[in-house]
């Protein structure tokens, strides 16, 4: 579904991605882990088009994604839940979800999606008229994920959904992600610093360091790799 080849991207003189090759098959749950500054967020932004690629290619369902303007990529079925949540603070919760449903598919499936979302996150139903900027961090993360779901995506990109959340709240969010993936049969790519949880819930994983893929493999393979255990799992 997503084919990334020798992708290079950066900011000014800084190279953030130095030739990343990565693929995701339909229905897969893929985790991308790695330390700060490894290029994980840049990878997502390049897929979404808010960072320009300098070299390489990205194909989504066979289509050359780099030829599609950033604002049209969501309409192809890519939902990007950005790092740091980035909800629309002065819009209500429900208006945030409506913006998620800006895509044609999202509008078509609005009734079913909204019902699913409110069942998944009942607190959002309760707060649907509240301004998203006044919610707690965990609730904002729920809005961000729900907003992604509201677009009826084929591919869900989740960038550090646990960032800045209390551990119990982060666990809740993780459970929700696993549940969403199971219930909706979505293709999910998860970027996470909490490597254990990320690797435990995925099918396959990639380890990114300084803009390069240093390791990739199935869940068990990665979890039993000595380097991973030392560097990320603290064992």
């Amino acid at each position: 579904m997503l084919e990334i080849r020798d992708l290079e991207a950066g900011y000014g003189g800084v190279m953030a991605l130095a030739g990343v090759t990565l693929s995701v098959a339909a229905g897969e749950f893929v985790s991308v882990v790695g330390p700060n500054g490894a290029g994980k967020t840049t990878l997502f932004k390049t897929v979404s088009g808010t960072v320009a690629a300098r070299a390489g290619s990205i194909r989504f369902e066979g289509q050359d994604l780099l030829a599609v303007p950033a604002h049209q990529r969501p309409h192809l079925g890519i939902a990007h839940v950005p790092e740091g949540r980035q909800v629309f603070p002065s819009l209500s919760v429900e208006e945030n979800l409506q913006m998620g449903a800006f895509t044609e598919a999202g509008r078509r499936d609005w009734a079913a999606n909204i019902e699913y979302i409110y069942r998944l996150f009942p607190i959002l139903l309760e707060r649907r008229r509240q301004l998203a900027g006044t919610l707690s961090g965990g609730q904002q993360q729920m809005v961000a994920i729900a907003r992604g779901l509201a677009s009826s995506p084929k591919l869900l990109l989740l960038d550090e959904p646990s960032m800045g959340l209390a551990p119990t709240v982060a666990d809740q969010i993780f459970d929700a992600v696993v549940e969403i993936r199971r219930a909706r049969n979505l293709t999910v790519v998860l970027v996470e610093q909490r490597a254990v949880e990320a690797l435990e819930s995925c099918d396959r994983g990639y380890v990114l360091e300084t803009g390069r893929v240093v390791l990739s493999g199935g869940q068990n393979e990665l979890l039993s790799d000595d380097r991973i255990r030392k560097a990320y799992l603290g064992m």
Partner: peptide, 8 residues
């Protein structure tokens, strides 16, 4: 930026 991610 987030608006772009919504397809706006």
């Amino acid at each position: 930026e987030a608006a772009v991610y919504m397809g706006i």
